[in-house]
Structure formats: C-alpha cells, structure tokens
Amino acid sequence: MLSIKNLHVSVGDKPILKGINLEINAGEIHAIMGPNGSGKSTLSHILSGKSGYTVTEGSVTYQGKELLEMPPEIRAREGVFLAFQYPVEIPGVSNIYLLKAALNSIRKHHGQSEVDAMDFLTLVKGKVRLLEMDEKFLYRAVNEGFSGGEKKRNEILQMAILEPKLCILDETDSGLDIDALKIVSEGVNSLRSTDRAFVMVTHYQRLLDYIKPDYVHVLANGQIVKSGGAELALELEEKGYSWLEDNQVAA
C-alpha cells in the first residue's frame, strides 16, 4: 500500500529525515516510536502533505501512485487520513458540515453522487454512538472549545466516517486520560480490516497496550534505527530510547 524509499526531508537547510525506508501493506498496523525531535511528526506531516518541508531525496508511493506529487486534498480523497496531534479549531464551521463536505468530496472524486441526507445522518449517528459522543457535538463548530480528549475523539469520528485506507495517527494518545484512551482505541480497533493500514506515531508505549501493532519501528535522528514486533515496544518502555541512540552513534 505504502512504500517509502530513502526519504530525505529538510525544513529550511536543516535535514530532519535522513533516509527512511518503510513498506506498509494493507491490513498491517505499524507503530513509529522515538524520542522527541526524532522526526516522527515530520514523517506524518510529509505523508499528509503539509507545506513547509522539502523532500531532498527519495520517494513515497501509495497504491502505486507518487504520493508526494498529490495536493493534500487529493491524498485525503484517495484514502490517506491524518489524525492530528493538535486538531485545529474552526469557528463557524460545524462538525456536520465538515463531515458532509469531506464525504461528498471523496464520493465526487470516485465519480459517485452526493450522499443521501438520511443515509448520511444514519451513518454519522451510528459512529457518534460508537465513540460514545453526544450528538450535539455534530452541530458544534469543529473542535471549538473541545477538551483535548474530545478533539482526539472527534478525529477518530471523522476517520470512522470517511473510512480511509491509510490511517496515520499522530500522537493520538497525548492528552488523553485512561477512559478516553480506551474509547479512542476501541474506535480504532473497530476500523481494523484487511484492506486498511495504520501508522501510529507515538512517544509512549501505552497506546500500544490497546491497539496492538504488527510492527514497531524506532526513529532516532531521522532514521529508523530498529524494527521489530510488538515486543520491541515493551523493551523500549523498559530501557528507554537512549540505548538505541547510543548504538546509532557507535555505528
């Protein structure tokens, strides 16, 4: 589904990612872990199309297409979804408006007609229940005045409705208390399927207690320094990141 080859990315003159290689197949869950400043967020931003980054080398193909050449909205319509670390507040635009605009953009992109109003409401309300949210949220402005947990839940709600192929979760666990973490995780788990892949960017292991990854990659100084199975996350929890960073320096 996603193939990242020798990806080098800079901000200004400063190299952030220094040769990332990663293969992600449908049905897989990959966790990208690493200390602050390792380039984790840059990786999720570059995949979703945020401006301000320069790709100096390498390529990213998504479902056989050059991902980096697509504008952000085309990536989103093709099924790439970024759950933001810091979801943006948009006063004056209701959640339901955004959901409808997004869903219809995807349908139009695939040559389908606009979603029927009743079907849409049924779909949305079902997902709202799944995430144990109040229906009133739908009519409030996007993220405006939401608590940290509500914002993250809202990201997962959007994901559940838009049914993307590649879900990138950027520090989704940050700012969540344990109850919210469980609800968000259940929402994510309910979306697991053989034709969908997840990339979870996280600093801590705790999210991985609830969403079990197939692969764990450790990012340090802009490179993947170690890859392994779910057990690697537990090892990191125990030992911290420094032994890997030290290894890298030694190498």
């Binding site: 199309g49 401006s51 952000p72 909205e73 989103a76 943006v88």
Partner: peptide, 16 residues
C-alpha cells in the same frame, strides 16, 4: 485566513 485551518480542511478532502 489561518494557514493551519486551511491545511486541516485540505486534509479532510476539501480543496484549497
């Protein structure tokens, strides 16, 4: 207009 908000909407399938 806030560029962050524009990107957020783009990431939700809306063109610029």
């Amino acid at each position: 207009l806030d560029e962050k908000s524009i990107f957020y909407l783009q990431s939700r399938c809306v063109d610029e």
